[in-house]
């Protein structure tokens, strides 16, 4: 095991507390450190790790090939500035040596040595940041970003920069109500999970921050599993089954999602930070191997189908439980 590998294991947000998994409105306050069998995670909102520069290069490539991954309805510009000016200070605090932020009123100067970025812009002045505040934010943090407007007694997914979607399309979902966004998800409507989540989010007050995790599985370290590129990655779900490299190719994909009420715009900022850990890496923690094997074996078929696990689930359970 290389050191890079164990660092990845040590900070992996392993999401299962029991041997079975069901959908819940599993929100908890942000910035609460979690201890895991291998280490821990969760002390901050932004989690900058060894893959930082690689992932941001990948985001830039995805966006260059398909600009529809960044969506912003015209009324969301204030929210985009708000997200940028909320999260750059957060990043500066997370990486004090490598980044710096100087503010002179609305005139901000941002330096990021991890990427070689140096920019000066004026908050609220669109000309000072030609790519737009949302696209600029997306070039600095690993998280995908969705901004939700609140009106007519609902939340609306009216802007977002999403290059690492787990099987959905920001371009198609932009402008939907929160409940419509979740339309395809099984069980959650009957169980009241998303209705409750929406009421909870609508009551968040300026600056309040919560988080939750979600998970699925991905073949290889492919971050861009959006609906747009399904034609490129869909076959791997089938091909991986007979592949002797299955434990190295198949990954548990965990999203740490933050939910932040932005102060100036009143928008909800939804951050999705994706972590991938191969079954072989996961198995270096015997407790995780046993638990994930059990969760995967017990998962109801409709949930496994929705998550796209059906083709390789049995093979994954076999490998996990053989160890």
């Amino acid at each position: 095991m290389t050191t890079a590998l164990s660092a990845r294991v040590a900070r992996f947000p392993f999401p299962f507390a029991t041997d079975s998994y069901r959908y819940l409105t599993n929100v908890e306050p942000a910035r609460t450190p979690v201890t895991t069998a291998a280490g821990g995670w969760g002390a901050g909102v932004l989690d900058v790790d060894d893959d930082y520069a690689v992932e941001l290069a990948e985001r830039a490539a995805v966006l260059a090939a398909d600009p529809t991954r960044c969506q912003e309805l015209p009324h969301m510009r204030v929210a985009s500035w708000d997200a940028l000016t909320t999260l750059l200070p957060e990043l500066a605090a997370a990486c004090p040596g490598e980044t710096s932020l100087e503010r002179d009123g609305d005139r901000w100067t941002w330096r990021n040595d991890l990427l070689g970025t140096a920019r000066t812009f004026t908050v609220g002045d669109d000309d000072s940041l030609p790519e737009g505040p949302l696209a600029f934010l997306g070039s600095q943090i690993q998280d995908d970003v969705v901004l939700l407007d609140q009106r007519e007694g609902a939340l609306w997914a009216d802007a977002g920069l999403v290059t690492f979607a787990a099987d959905w399309s920001m371009g198609f979902d932009v402008g939907m109500r929160f409940l419509e966004v979740h339309g395809p998800v099984p069980r959650v409507h009957e169980a009241g999970v998303v209705q409750r989540a929406e009421r909870f989010l609508m009551r968040l007050q300026p600056g309040e921050e919560y988080r939750r995790t979600n998970w699925t599985m991905t073949v290889d370290r492919r971050l861009d599993t959006s609906t747009e590129t399904y034609a490129e990655w869909g076959r791997d779900r089938r091909l991986v089954v007979g592949d002797p490299a299955l434990p190295d190719r198949l990954h548990l994909r965990v999203e740490v999602q933050h939910l932040i009420r932005l102060g100036v715009s009143n928008a909800i900022c939804f951050l999705v930070r994706t972590h991938l850990l191969s079954l072989r890496e996961l198995a270096t923690v015997p407790e995780w191997r046993q638990r994930f094997g059990a969760v995967l074996a017990e998962l109801p078929d409709d949930m496994a189908d929705y998550k796209g696990l059906t083709r390789f689930r049995a093979a994954a359970v076999d490998w996990l439980t053989a160890g």
Binding site: T25, N26, V27, E28, P29, R196, F200
Partner: peptide, 9 residues
């Protein structure tokens, strides 16, 4: 407990 806000159950 998790959320302490009456939402998670």
């Amino acid at each position: 407990n998790l959320c302490r806000q009456g939402v998670c159950g």
